[in-house]
Structures are given as structure tokens and as C-alpha cells.
Amino acid sequence: MNAVSTTSSGAPESAKATLRRYLQQAREAMLWKLDGVTEYDARRPLTPTGTNLLGLVKHVAGVEFGYLSEVFGYGEGAPGWLDGSDPDPQVDMWARPDETREDVVALYRTAWANTDAAIAELTLDTVGRVPHWPDARNPVTFQQILVHLVAETHRHAGHADILREGIDGAAGYTPSATNLPQWDDNDGGWPAYVAKLEQVAARFRD
């Protein structure tokens, strides 16, 4: 199996292109988790710490804007709450009543465009400084920040995946490539699989 991604011309994909591709995959996964859910389900807290689908999308939008504006000066379209002046410490983790789902999604897409402009214009070895990171982790390169964005976005896409499954059972990477097994009707599907795991786990119950 060829583990190296290639371009349409057959040349190996550049490091910059690879980082952007993985970031874009995570971005699209984040937005897919909002598709088809009610406004209530998009906003309601689904964990003891209040994690919610729309808040996760708002958060990753703020993450992209934050690192690109603070470190490299790319902040076109950044939200006002990003400057830390809002008294709510969780302002980026939920959508207020006057923030529509469309507003949050548009903000995220603006963040994409902002980051993509930086990807097009900066070299991976461009140096910057993250104000809220300790001196031991500064200075940083643009490549480090892109890796951080990829890791952060995929992490929260995983959160969104679990939340969405709990809402209506929708699960997987994308609608066209769920990355989940397709059970044969004779296998009993997910209920049989879950029952098997529960039986195994029960052996270890105190």
C-alpha cells in the first residue's frame, strides 16, 4: 500500500497541502454533526460540563481565529469576544440566543478562509509567538500552529461525533465514508455487538 499522498500529477503531496487536507477533513466533520439536528439538540448541554454541538463549532472557529490572529496577524472577520473582554469565561463554548446556527457556521467558514489565506501566503518555517503559551514553548513556527489546529479540530470532531450519536444514533466520519463496519443482517447489527461487549465487561464487574 502506498502511504504517501500524491497530487494529480503523481508528485508527492507537500507538507503544507497535507496539513491543510487533514484540517479540512476535520472541519467538514464538525459541520456534518450539525446537519439534521433540531435547534434544541444543536444547543442543549449533553455532558455535565455543558458540552454542546453548536458550542463546539463556535469554539473551533475561535481557535483558528485566535492562533492565526495572535501569532501571525491574520484576523480578518474575527469575532469581538476573541479579545478576552467578555465576562463569560465560556463565551466560545455556547451560542447565545442572538447567535443563530447560520451565524456560527458562517463564522467558522470565515475562519477557514482566514487560515487558508495564511496557508497560501506563509512558509511553514515562518516564526511567531503564542502570547498565552509559556516561554519554554515559544517561539513557534507556522507548521507547529497548523499541527496544533489539526489536532485540536480532530479532537473536538471526536467530541461532536459522540454527542451526535447520543442524540439520534448518527455516527461516523462523513455521510459517504462513515469508517464503520457495515453489518450483515445475520450479524444482529449494533445491538448484538453492544450486547457482546456488555457481556465481556460484566465479567469484570465488582
Rank of each mutant, 00 (worst) to 15 (best):
V71R: 03
A17I: 09
K16R: 14
Y67Q: 05
R43F: 04
R27T: 13
D41V: 11
Y108H: 15
P48H: 02
L146K: 06
V127F: 11
I145F: 00
P97Y: 04
P45I: 09
A95F: 00
V37P: 07
W133D: 14
A195M: 11
H148D: 12
A42D: 03
L149D: 08
H132D: 12
T141F: 02
D92I: 08
W32Q: 14
F204D: 13
I162K: 10
V127N: 10
E64G: 03
D88L: 02
D92W: 07
V104K: 09
S5F: 07
G80V: 08
A78W: 01
V63W: 00
G166I: 05
E102L: 09
L149K: 03
G172S: 09
W112Q: 11
L19M: 15
E99K: 01
R109H: 15
I162N: 04
N114G: 04
T178C: 06
W112D: 12
V57N: 07
V150W: 02
A177V: 06
T100L: 02
G172Y: 14
D135G: 14
W112V: 08
Q24W: 00
V147M: 06
Q182T: 13
M93I: 03
E39M: 03
H148A: 04
T178V: 07
L180K: 12
G172I: 10
T174Y: 01
V150C: 14
T6V: 04
L107F: 03
G172F: 08
L163H: 01
V150E: 03
T49I: 06
R129N: 12
A170C: 05
Y22A: 09
A113D: 11
V60L: 05
T174M: 13
G169D: 09
D98V: 01
F65L: 08
D187Y: 05
L34K: 06
H148C: 05
T174C: 12
P191K: 07
G189D: 02
G50M: 07
